[in-house]
Design a protein around this nucleic acid. Structure first.
Ligand SMILES: [Mn+2]
Ligand SMILES: [Mn+2]
Length: 290
DNA sequence: GGGCAAA
DNA sequence: TTTGCCCAACGCCTA
DNA sequence: TAGGCG
């Protein structure tokens, strides 16, 4: 596919062009596409670069070609909504060439939109949080997951925090998964030495790390693995081996560095779906759950 | 990035 | 012919 | 019921 406006500057502070962005998505497609496949997408598009106004887009553009998969999923309040779904490298490249910088995905697939196959806890630190504290919190989340039979995977978000994710069997409704994620978050916040809070209201958080379970609600999204972020630095969301976490920074993988990674090293999340577990079983193992 | 209506 | 506008929505909480 | 929050 021909890249249009290849030399247009997309990241002015980093000297990166649209050609660099589309080339990046070409290079990571093998690792990234499995994490997009079948999932409703939210695109964050910046056709004139990240310094100009961009927008979120979930419904397919009228001009998108037929080769771009579109699926209808139930809307919470009744009716349905059309979403773009990216199942292959060609679609990824097309969307990147449309100026998509960030890709966000549902925690469920179009086959079972109301039964998530992912659970995620999101660490949102206030300014000035030492990264060591963030890493320690991620490990404690992992330990809580494992106590209830979930397998934990971690990614640097490319922003300010980490995501700790567990694959699920997609047999429990969003309600159950949300309840489980909240119970896990509350346990981590209540039992550890870390300065963590699950309070939604900013004024109640103080100077603590926000442990966000809200991404597990219906029709919510999280940043897709290997997605670039639309901020100076051109960091990418980057799945990590737990052994790498000790020296990982949330925004430590730039476009240039990242794009060799999946080729050089297996995707740390490659085996995700082999570890799918039951949310109901996990919930039953939680002492605090009724 | 591109379609579309208004100026 | 050029310019401007549109391109998301939602869940779940607390006040 | 409106607004905060992500
Ligand atoms: Mn976050
Ligand atoms: Mn968050």
């Amino acid at each position: 596919m021909k890249i249009s406006h290849e030399d247009k500057v997309f990241y002015p502070e980093d000297g990166l062009t649209k050609g660099d962005v589309v080339g990046y998505y070409r290079d990571v497609a093998d690792a990234m596409v499995p994490h997009l496949r079948g999932r409703p997408l939210t695109l964050r598009r910046f056709p004139d670069g990240i310094a100009k106004q961009g927008w979120f887009q979930k419904h397919p553009g009228e001009h998108f070609p037929d080769s771009v998969r579109v699926e209808s999923v139930p809307r919470a309040g009744g009716g349905t909504d059309d979403y773009v779904v990216c199942d292959d490298a060609e679609t990824l490249e097309y969307l990147a060439n449309q100026g998509t910088v960030e890709f966000h995905v549902w925690l469920s697939t179009v086959d079972a939109p109301t039964c998530p196959d992912r659970l995620v806890l999101d660490l949102d630190p206030p300014d000035g949080t030492p990264v060591a504290e963030l890493r320690a919190a991620a490990r404690r989340i992992r330990d809580e997951y494992e106590r209830v039979g979930l397998t934990a995977f971690v990614q640097a978000t490319g922003g300010r925090g980490f995501h700790v994710l567990a694959p699920l069997d997609a047999k429990s409704d969003t309600d159950v998964v949300l309840e489980l994620s909240r119970a896990l978050a509350d346990r981590v916040a209540a039992t550890g030495p870390d300065r963590l809070t699950t309070a939604q209201r900013k004024e109640k958080r103080g100077d603590r790390i926000f442990l966000d379970a809200n991404r597990n609600g219906y029709a919510q999204t999280f940043v897709a693995p290997y997605s670039l972020r639309a901020r100076p630095g051109a960091a990418a969301a980057t799945p990590l081996d737990w052994r790498e976490l000790g020296k990982a920074e949330p925004d430590g993988w730039s476009l240039a560095k990242e794009k060799q990674r999946p080729a050089r090293k297996d995707d740390p999340w490659r085996a995700l779906d082999e570890h799918a577990a039951s949310a109901e079983t996990a919930l039953a193992k939680l002492p605090s759950a009724e």
